[in-house]
Design a protein around this nucleic acid. Structure first.
Length: 118
DNA sequence: GACCTGACTGCTG
DNA sequence: GCAGCAGCCAGGT
């Protein structure tokens, strides 16, 4: 008992998930980040899976550029969750990001650190 | 109410 | 240097 979120309103989104969305929306055009970077930014570096899971929960939000979020290797592991097999890749290429074999080329160069902005 | 899965990461062998 | 395993947390069945 004690601290229970009595907020039954939209404020219930003040969870870990909302944090992920906020960071994802902060990703600049033509850039990309990793799940671990976002997780670490939220103070849960070991919960990178939750970042990916948050993306799954965000499925439907156009304001959350999940296509800019990839794994540590720069591989589009979550592309399978997008509409269309290459939608995620096309979105990145459309922003000037070179994607080869579901992997971002020169990922370290386009890598965006959320902690650096936050 | 408990178990399993899941868009990852870091460490150890 | 590469491969495999365990850990993390939350949602779904």
């Amino acid at each position: 008992m004690g601290v229970e979120k009595k907020n039954t309103t939209s404020q219930s989104e003040d969870n870990f998930f909302e944090r992920v969305y906020e960071v994802a929306k902060l990703i600049p055009y033509g850039r990309a980040t990793s799940y671990g970077a976002i997780a670490k930014c939220l103070g849960a570096a070991r919960s990178a899976r939750m970042v990916g899971w948050a993306m799954n929960a965000c499925g439907g939000r156009d304001d959350v550029p999940a296509h800019r979020v990839v794994n540590r290797k720069g591989v589009l592991t979550g592309k399978h969750h997008f509409q269309g097999t290459n939608l995620m890749q096309q979105l990145l290429e459309s922003e000037g990001v070179t994607v080869e074999d579901n992997q971002i080329v020169d990922f370290e160069n386009i890598f965006w650190d959320p902690m650096k902005e936050l």
